[in-house]
Structures are given as structure tokens and as C-alpha cells.
Design a protein around this nucleic acid. Structure first.
Lengths: 332, 332
DNA sequence: AACCATGATGGAATCGTTTCCATGAAGGCG
DNA sequence: CGCCTTCATGGAAACGATTCCATCATGGTT
């Protein structure tokens, strides 16, 4: 069977078959304008008979925009982001909008490239977990993109609608819980791009009357290796710490791994709280105490926001929840 | 700042600025055809000065195809598929091709819709983990799409290039391992769409001289709830089974959960092997023995295949590996 | 000197749709 | 009966690129 170059059936074919003009076909099919019931009938029949599907290409060119939505996330492999993406897809699929996904790896440069590529595609709406600063996003705004940020915001772009979790209260709840258990030397293990959480961590500590030990606030890069190195380094440099707050599920995972590797018992030797609940958290040994985040909702809400961009919508803050399992104990 | 409707700079603007014709600009910028060094210089300078980016819209219409690639997976939330997607992105991003992702939920109907939407977008290449049968895919082939299947194949479409794991040998290795430990009543917990693995399971059993107990071969739907129900039902109906082979990481997860819920100890009361290695498998209690699959590679290879579709490429089979941890023990 | 091959160049057609505008028919109303 | 409004309709002009084709200049060969 040869891949024959059969011409796609166009609106012209339908027009001929229905014995009307192309304009009429377009009006009937898109529901705009008026048409007599009789011709409407004929057009619909012809379209069905020829199995006609309007080409998005022509339409997009005329409309000067792709209907599609761009989605930029740091790492699709991270369950938090994949749940977020799932939420986005759930909403956009209902709206029939295609979604172009790009993985930034939390690298501003790659992000800039991806933004450029989206502009080139004439995508007009973007949902992004931003890694770059305001600078990177300038071209996007210049091109008139409708942008919604998720999970994080961008300094200097506070006017961009965004959907975030209530980091401050989440972190504070976790810190209070740990302090309540008697812990005093608590570490925060975060990733680049989680400056917000690190800040919230410091705030919570000071507002609870403790001093911030900057050595206990460490940041890793987006890769698993970097995270493991950071966690392991933390435990080795500061054997005196008694609790760790991990800023994401990958961080929590490697923290647990590193602790185990160094023969530290959780929670006897060190307590662990992880941001973001995941299905396997209760399968772990010990089951992990977590601060759950509504990742799916977050994506869904972001998609809603970007789809009806008419309303000047402010940022949405989603609540977190402390789920106590077994990875935290009293200070040893 | 008002979102002014500033016109996008087009090839015409560049042509004017460089004092040449649009054809020349196109030739210079796309590298095709010839142009004198002097004009080339002028065009390039003008393009740079105006910050010109050719619109993919115009190009695509003329070329009658979107450069993009469609990616259809059952569930982006499943780490196996998200790793696969990551592999695809890694390859396509290097090639500068945008990727449109759709989640089928293993539902043939939704899959058909998504295929339709891709055709409408004039996407010309698709990578899919197919859930429907040959029927669903007919429109795609009729439209001349370049299709590559991943993880699974479609009955009656054996000629479509695909990238799969060596299910047969993976299953067989697992079964041999369990039988070697003395197990005789082994269950297979699979999902719809994993018929291949179920078949391999039966084959392995019979070829090792055992009879197949059909009650021990169960299939769940793509949702977590359905999977949990299946696992739980299995344990309750057949308390005599001593080992379970789970066909995917979500299945393994719920199997472990269900076992724990029913006070079955792993591996003392029941042994568990899971298809697909995941980072948390060794964090579990007990650490899970798995058959690892190169999900990332799979996506990458599939993307390679679909990108250079020129070569009539046959299907690629990737190896699996048994990773022994602690979830299997001798028959109780 | 006549001729031809080659290379540079721009005009115009093309892709498939939407939408503006003009035309004609029909119907309501004074 | 004539006029005005409304509706249905089709032709044609966008949209922004690529690419065919014709034109013209140049330089080398006989």
C-alpha cells in the first residue's frame, strides 16, 4: 500500500457538493451568521458525507492564533508536576484545546527557548511553573500571550494571575508541628525555585522565637543526584539536626534514602516531613508525614484561569494540609 | 500598559527593510536557494533588527502540516508514562519539535477523539500507547499520519513501527524466579491493555509445566480504585495464593496496600513482584522486587523512530531486568 | 561577436479558512 | 403600490509563509 498523496477534503469540496458558496459552508459549520434551514441541511449533509473536518491550519492563520495552550513545567517525571499537568489536561480536554508540553528542567535558558518556540507557534495561552525571572518572560508579554503561573510566581510580575499553594501556612504548620515535638534544630531542604518556601521557613522559625541557622537551609538543583548530594551533605555536616522539612517529594525521597544510607533511623534519629503527598508515602517505611498539596486542582484552576482570560483575575491560593503519619517523632 | 494589538512583524516587513523581495527573505532565512552575500547580509541584519520570527502558522499552511508531534498516553500521572513522556520530550526538544500531549485514560473512545483532534490540527506524527483496536486508528492512517506505538501494539496493525518491552521474557523471568522460590499458586494482576503480559504469564506457566488457574489472572481498569478493588478481591477470594505478579507500578502499589489492609505480610504470607522499577520501590517496606523497564529510553526511541519516518523501521524490543529486593520469599 | 549556462532576484500563486461587503429576494408597513 | 428593513447568499480579500517561474545580468566558451 503506497502512502498516496490524497488531497484533504476542504471547505471548497463541501461547498461544491452542497451547491453553495464557501462562505455559507463556513457560516453553517461555525454556527455564526445566518442560513436558511434548507441550505443548512444540505451543507451539514454534504459535510457528513465527505467526512469533512475543517483544517485548524487555515483557521489559525486567518485568526492569527493557534487555539492551543502551552504548558511549561520543570520536570514531567516529578509526580507533583505530572499531577498538575493532569489537571491542566482534564480542563483543556473538556474545552477541546490541544496542549503543548515542554520540560524546562528549571533552567531559565531552556525556558526562554521554549517560550520562543511557543510564540513561533502562535500559541496564545501559556500555563507555566516559571524558573526564570521577569526578564525571560518579557518576550511572552510583548507577544501578547495570556500567561498564568502555577506553583510559583515571578518577582516583578506580581500582576500575572497565578495559582499557588499557601506555602507560608503550610510551612508554618509543619514547623509548629516539629517544634511541638521538641525539635530545635530543623533543616529545610529545598530546590531552586522554592525560594518562597525557604523564606516562609525562616519566617516561621523567627516568628516562633527561634533563630535561623543558615547552614540548615540548603537548596539543590532539579536533578535527583543534586538533591541526593544535598541531603547527604546536610546529614553529614550537621549530625546535630533532629528534623528535616523537605520542600518536595523528590527531596523527601532522597532525604529518606540518604538517612538510611547513613544509618540514621527515621523517626528515631531524625524526623522527616515532606511537602506534597504521594501515593507511596504511606507505603514507605516509615510512612511519611506530609504536607499535601492539591496538585491536580492547581493545574485545573490554572487552566480555567487561562481559558477565560477575559476577567482580570488575581492569584488563587490553594490550601495545604498536614497529614500525620509516622516519620516524625519526639526529639531524641 | 494596555495590551495593544501591535501587528506582528512579518516577512514583508523584513523584505521592505532590507529592500528585497519576500521570496529572497524566505530563501535566505530558510537556507534554501541562492542569494548573494551582500543581500544575505542585508536580510539577516534587517531580520535581526526587527526581531523577526517567522510565523509557524503561515509556514504550516503552505506546507500543509504542523511540525508538531502528538503524544497519546493513558495516564500522565503514572510514573511509567511520565518517564516515557520525558523521553519523548528529550528527543523532540532537541529536534525543536513541539509536542501535544493527550491523556486517553485507556479509553478507546477518548483516544478516538484525541486522534481526531490531532488530525484536525494537521499534526503529522503521533506517538501513542494505544488503547483502542485497529478500527480506532483507521482515520489516522487514512490521514497519512506517521504513527509509532509505544509499550503496546495493536492487533491487526503489526506493520506499524513500535517500541515495546520484552514482556514475554520479563514475565518469564519473574515467574521462574517465583517458582524457584517454591511458589505454585501465582496470581497475575493486570490492567486492560496488558493483554500481552497476561498472555505471556499463561505461556510462562504452562511452559514451566504448571496449569493456569484463570481465577488468578485478573484485570483492572485504569483507575486506582478499580485496581485496589481487584487486588483486594483477589486476596480475599483466593487466600491460598502465595505470590502476585503486578503488571504495573500502580498495580503493585495497590497490591501492597491491599495486602497490608488484610493483614497479609509481605513477603512472609505473600510474595510480590511488580512490573516497572520506580524510585520509591526501595523505600517501601519491604523494598519491592521489580522487573524494571527502560521507560525513558522507550519514549526516546519512539520519538527517534517517528522523526525519521523515512526508513521503513520495524518494531524495537527493549529488554527488562529483574531487580531483586525484599518483597519475595520462599513459599510459606 | 554570438550564444548559452548559471546565478540572483522579485512577482505572483498557493495553502484552507474566516469574514467583509455587495447583491438580491422577501416581507412589513404606510 | 412603493419604500425600507431584514435575511440569505456568494465572491473576494485577507492571514503569512513557501515556492514556482520568468526575468535579467554576468561571464565563459566557441
Amino acid at each position: 500500500m503506497k502512502a498516496s498523496e490524497q488531497r484533504r477534503t476542504t471547505i471548497k469540496d463541501v461547498a461544491e457538493a452542497a451547491e453553495v458558496g464557501v462562505a455559507t459552508v463556513s457560516r453553517v459549520l461555525s454556527g455564526t451568521g445566518s442560513a436558511s434551514p434548507a441550505t443548512r441541511e444540505r451543507v451539514l449533509a454534504a459535510a457528513a458525507r465527505l467526512d469533512y473536518r475543517p483544517s485548524a491550519l487555515g483557521r489559525n492563520l486567518r485568526r492569527r492564533s493557534t487555539g492551543g495552550i502551552g504548558l511549561l513545567i520543570p520536570d514531567i517525571t516529578d509526580t507533583f508536576y505530572s499531577r498538575l499537568a493532569d489537571g491542566v489536561l482534564a480542563c483543556t480536554q473538556a474545552a477541546g484545546e490541544p496542549v503543548m508540553v515542554g520540560a524546562t528542567g528549571d533552567d531559565p535558558e531552556r525556558e526562554a527557548e521554549l517560550i520562543g518556540s511557543l510564540i513561533e507557534q502562535s500559541v496564545e495561552r501559556v500555563i507555566a511553573v516559571p524558573s526564570g525571572d521577569g526578564e525571560m518572560w518579557a518576550p511572552a508579554f510583548r507577544a501578547g500571550l495570556g500567561v498564568v503561573f502555577a506553583e510559583r510566581r515571578v518577582r516583578g510580575r506580581e500582576d500575572v494571575p497565578s495559582v499557588v499553594t499557601d506555602d507560608r501556612s503550610g510551612v508554618r504548620t509543619a514547623v509548629e508541628y516539629l517544634i511541638g515535638l521538641g525539635h530545635r534544630r530543623i533543616a529545610f531542604l529545598g530546590r531552586h525555585g522554592q525560594a518562597q518556601r525557604a523564606r516562609a521557613f525562616r519566617e516561621a522559625l523567627t516568628s516562633l522565637g527561634m533563630t535561623v541557622d543558615e547552614e540548615l537551609v540548603v537548596r539543590a538543583h532539579a536533578t535527583r543526584d543534586s538533591a541526593y548530594a544535598a541531603a547527604s551533605g546536610l546529614f553529614q555536616h550537621r549530625p546535630d539536626l533532629t528534623a528535616v522539612l523537605a520542600g518536595g517529594n523528590m527531596l523527601g525521597e532522597v532525604a529518606l534514602l540518604a538517612a538510611r544510607e547513613l544509618d540514621l533511623r527515621v523517626p528515631r534519629d531524625v524526623s522527616l516531613i515532606m511537602f506534597d503527598d504521594v501515593p507511596w508515602a504511606e507505603l514507605c517505611s516509615p510512612p511519611l508525614t506530609v504536607i499535601s498539596q492539591p496538585a491536580h486542582d492547581m493545574g485545573y484552576r490554572a487552566a480555567e484561569l487561562v481559558l477565560r482570560e477575559g476577567r482580570r483575575s488575581r492569584t488563587v491560593t490553594l490550601p495545604t494540609e498536614l497529614i500525620v503519619r509516622a516519620s516524625c517523632g519526639p526529639r531524641r
